[in-house]
Design a protein around this nucleic acid. Sequence first.
DNA 1: TATGGACCCTCCAGTAAATGGAGAGTCAAG
DNA 2: CTTGACTCTCCATTTACTGGAGGGTCCATA
Lengths: 270, 270
Amino acid sequence: MFKIGDFSKLSLVTVKTLRYYDEIGLLRPIKIDRFTGYRYYSAGQLPRLQYIIALKNLGLSLDEISAMTKNSLSSSQMRDVFIKKKVELQQRIGEEQKRLMQVEKLLERIKMEGKMPDYQIVIKNIEPMNIASVRDTVPEIQDMDGLWETLKAVRTYHASSITGPIMAIYHDMEYREKNVDVEVAVPIHEEITLPDPIKVRNLPGETVASLIHKGPYETMDAAYQALMTWCESNGYELAGPDRHLFLRTHKDVGNPEEYISEMQQPVRKI
Amino acid sequence: MFKIGDFSKLSLVTVKTLRYYDEIGLLRPIKIDRFTGYRYYSAGQLPRLQYIIALKNLGLSLDEISAMTKNSLSSSQMRDVFIKKKVELQQRIGEEQKRLMQVEKLLERIKMEGKMPDYQIVIKNIEPMNIASVRDTVPEIQDMDGLWETLKAVRTYHASSITGPIMAIYHDMEYREKNVDVEVAVPIHEEITLPDPIKVRNLPGETVASLIHKGPYETMDAAYQALMTWCESNGYELAGPDRHLFLRTHKDVGNPEEYISEMQQPVRKI
DNA sequence: TATGGACCCTCCAGTAAATGGAGAGTCAAG
DNA sequence: CTTGACTCTCCATTTACTGGAGGGTCCATA
């Protein structure tokens, strides 16, 4: 019979931890003095403790270990637990490696450009939504304003059905300055019906690379560049028309330097 | 100005999380209504939030992010942070991979043997200690008893100086049945002096693979086998004479099936 | 027998980054 | 005015411990 300190020295497990394992019922002392509360352990408990430590080193949680040691699982159940653990570990390693790669890319860029990049790119999952939209091919980007006019009806008469910020969807697969195939849209509840040429349709959920741009629209090509570069070096490929969300526009603020937009480029992991 | 729910939809960060970020001062709303307590955010805060999320995805803690965004570090300081993060990530990936390998080996063994292995092997770091010991080459292992007799003096007259369980150290580099070079020892405080042939010496700290054996000493070769196999398949090589700790012996219990021993084999990561 | 120091006890607080829920107050459309 | 959606604060919970306060126990020595 060992007092907790001696047992701790034998097992190289701290006294605090032993008391904790007692508390959660993972490893109870063979005896607790009724009067002093002193815990007494026996050498015979060392295999059990060793077992616990071994399982912990494999990455099992104390809960899992409790379950395994208490119900003394069959070996096929054991196998299942470890297979599950294995998958979990593989997944975590994958994530960490992705992270590591991103950090490395970032370091590279800092080294190349001598400063932190101006844009932070983040992967998000966008839920599907319903939109009211008008789509057309316009000679110049500025001509998009006509489409906004068309949509204005929705925005004034159905203001309460609107569920998000207005956006533009660029359907050309490559960048172009003239004859742009653009769809301007506003997210809505499903119910309303609208006159031609406004259409109500469903915009599917997507995984997008998102970037927030502050400033006038003319300076957005750098942002677009950054997004492309990021996708390339982080192993994503483009997977659909990109969306432009207008989060703060001339209607909210006078100075175009204060405009805020979000670019959402659907992507797919290569 | 958005209420917290709208801002949450825009940023895809939960309301709870936004409130938490407010609480820890990471991202405060631009305005809080003095009477209702309602938080109001602006589109202009999205870049900041995006930045926070990007850094979080790289594996930085909110504390680190706070420090980075509050003091707007120079780019060389930024670089240092990321280099540190990179090292940290590499290390964690290494550990997880080691774990994964161990799980895989274990699964293999379960498959081969149709059951959980009988022995759990654990890596420990043993602190250096002082021992009183007698070393000799004995024709048969049983003859070790003579050495125990010699040490008995220590164990009776200096009982209070003893700091741990008795042990045997096998100095032969390979296993042998005859002419065993063995040292029997008992850990002590440094101060005492002892008559010949007992020596007081320092046993260095070691990294050991440890295994706990229950039962008579005759059945320990299976344990030794298991230890060797484990070391081989987990990438460790032997790095010194192994120690045998006697944790429960004939002095504590009658039935040899109840004996408890610990084998400590110093190892080195290959 | 007294005492000093090492050891042990319980209880409480804190860690990181949220999540879940109770109970109450607020907003906006119809 | 009602109703339902939204928001607020405060508290508890998660993991696997760690640290400390305040107080009791053990035991070898004086």
